[in-house]
């Protein structure tokens, strides 16, 4: 299977490229990036060909592309890749507006190419295990969720509203909203959000709390932020607690770690040794393309997660809940 990567603007591109290299049935055939330095460097690192022209790249023989550009360029790249009949794995969030996301889904349908959204948290072993427990009925009926996705400020284009479409709330809401929808199989009908910026001296949000209600009455909280600083023992977190009528169970995607103490500015580090969820995502995408099946995480899943994040901004602005 021949795969290309479009843009290394998002740091996940490195992890996805590392994953491709590990797969015996996949080959990284080229990298397109209109940042020449970045693209050339990545191509050298992964011993593949660099393209500075998108059309030439898309004309190359390959089955699928992985798009890791700035958020506001997802649409352009997805549309071009779809028209070139390449299957697509698109970094989250799917887009910066609902209209763009809808157009991307529609064009991919039209050209009959797969559009999968990169929500790797679904491939975290504890998160997947909890999904199985829910499906087995071990928790009874779900009544509520508590979720977090907090990390460090990534800087660069992430803090430029034009390119990112939003700050921490957009960046760190979509993963856990996707997990809640996946666990429950229901849609969100109400979003209340408080969005603010104060952890960093930046012109974009870096903190937010969301209160959600699903169509079946299940309620949830979500804490999305870039509140972790460099001295914190680990990058951040992705947790979900499911309150069920039989029991309450929490899954923490980064819990599997040991503590390492060292002298220096960062005296304690949590060294993660759990499963590589990015590898799980890439493996699933490749299998999906090979088998020609519906992706496990569709463009629609991406759209619904985006919708909740954007509603949080609207709610915070209006100071009242937003109904979807």
């Amino acid at each position: 299977m021949k795969i290309g990567i479009m843009s290394f603007a998002h740091m996940h591109a490195f992890s996805y490229a590392d994953s491709l290299i590990k797969l015996p049935n996949a080959e990284l055939v080229g990298i397109f990036d209109d940042d020449t330095n970045r693209g050339k460097k990545a191509a050298e690192q992964y011993h593949t060909k660099y393209f500075d022209d998108q059309d030439t790249f898309l004309a190359t023989e390959m089955d699928a592309v992985i798009i890791c550009s700035e958020n506001n360029r997802h649409k352009e790249m997805v549309l071009n890749a779809a028209q070139a009949k390449k299957h697509i794995l698109c970094e989250k969030p799917i887009a910066t507006t609902i209209e763009d996301a809808e157009e991307m889904i529609q064009v991919c349908n039209e050209y009959k190419v797969i559009l999968q959204i990169a929500f790797p948290v679904r491939f975290s072993s504890p998160i997947a295990q909890l999904k199985k427990m829910i499906d087995n009925g071990d928790l009874g009926e779900i009544v509520a969720f508590r979720t977090t996705n907090r990390g460090q400020n990534p800087g660069d284009w992430f803090i430029d509203k034009e390119q990112s479409g939003g700050g921490a709330v957009l960046d760190h809401t979509v993963h856990m909203v996707d997990i809640m929808r996946w666990y429950l199989g229901k849609e969100i009908t109400e979003v209340h959000g408080i969005v603010d910026s104060y952890f960093h001296d930046i012109d974009i949000d870096d903190a937010g709390i969301l209160t959600l209600e699903f169509e079946n009455g299940v309620i949830a909280t979500h804490d999305a932020s870039w509140s972790k600083f460099s001295a914190y023992p680990m990058w951040g977190d992705a947790t979900i607690e499911v309150i069920g009528t039989k029991q309450t169970v929490k899954a923490d995607a980064f819990k599997e770690h040991f503590r390492m103490y060292a002298s220096g500015a960062k005296s304690l580090s949590h060294v993660f040794y759990g499963n590589d969820m990015d590898f799980g995502l890439i493996q699933d995408f490749i299998a999906c393309v090979e088998e020609g099946r519906t992706p496990s995480i569709t463009g629609y899943d991406g759209l619904k997660a985006l919708e909740a994040a954007l509603a949080a901004y609207e709610s915070s602005k209006k100071k009242s809940p937003v109904y979807l």
């Binding site: 009926e141 009544v143 509520a144 209340h192 408080i194 709390i209 209160t211 209600e213 009455g217 299940v218 309620i219 909280t221 309150i243 009528t245 309450t248 809940p321």
Partner: peptide, 18 residues
Amino acid sequence: VQLKGTKQEVKPYHLIIT
């Protein structure tokens, strides 16, 4: 202050105060 609670008749009862 915003409140959101689960159905009182379903146990456990969960309350969110924002």
